[in-house]
Amino acid sequence: MLLGSLLLLSGCSSSTAWGWYVINPWTPAGWTNVKFLIGGMGSTILISIIAAAISIVLGLIVALPGLSNRWGIRLINRIYVEFIRSIPLLPMLFWVFYGLPIVFRSMGLNIPIDPFWGAIITLAISDSAFTAEIYRAGIQSIARGQTEAAQTIGLNYAQTMRYVILPQAVRRILPPLANQFIYIVKMSAFASVIGMQELTRRANELVVTEYRPLEIYTLLILEYLVLVLVISAGVRWLERRMGSDERG
């Protein structure tokens, strides 16, 4: 069984020898390939940052009705979160990229959606459901006694939010929000299927011309690994800073 699959694997491959030369930076051809692959980094980072920025604003807008005392208003939050959270990213991407322009045209609007913005819109909306839940949990985690103490010294609702609740909630919200950024970076790989020239798309294109999937996809994975490790380090630094602030 094991032997059979090994035979099958070697049979499919064009060559049984390693082919790291395709990405050997010390040869001119290899260096050209590496530069081409790493060249996708800028798009991956840009898409992720813009999508995360939109998601952070959208998430707060979605979270606030979820904190209302009235169930009718809370329902708006629940429907959005449950609905968006249940859509897989790839179908949503197809719907936004291929479907949304048709919706716009039927409304008499001529708004083209290019791969760049198609990817950003999809990632931002998909992520906003999670961001909203992070905000809601963060604000609710501030003990009720804080609100009551603020009321007894005469602060109104807006002042209580601004001076007492949100400054404390931010400390709990920021680390999970930053963590969520890792999710966006990884999911941005899906943008490759609508033709966005980011890391994954470039790797795919090179595989088609070089026939070296193992070596090229290995480098691709390492690229994501580096990105995610850098973000993780940032998150941990943030958590340490936030933590020490809380203790004073």
Binding site: A143, G145, Q146, E148, A149, A150, I153, G154, L155, N156, Q159, Y163, V164, P167, Q168, R171, D245, E246
Partner: peptide
């Protein structure tokens, strides 16, 4: 129910400054 993110002095001045 003190406000943990503020100093003692800020805990005391918040009400008088913002509410009064």
């Amino acid at each position: 129910n003190l406000f943990p993110h503020l100093t003692v002095l800020q805990n005391l001045t918040l009400g008088p400054m913002k509410a009064r």
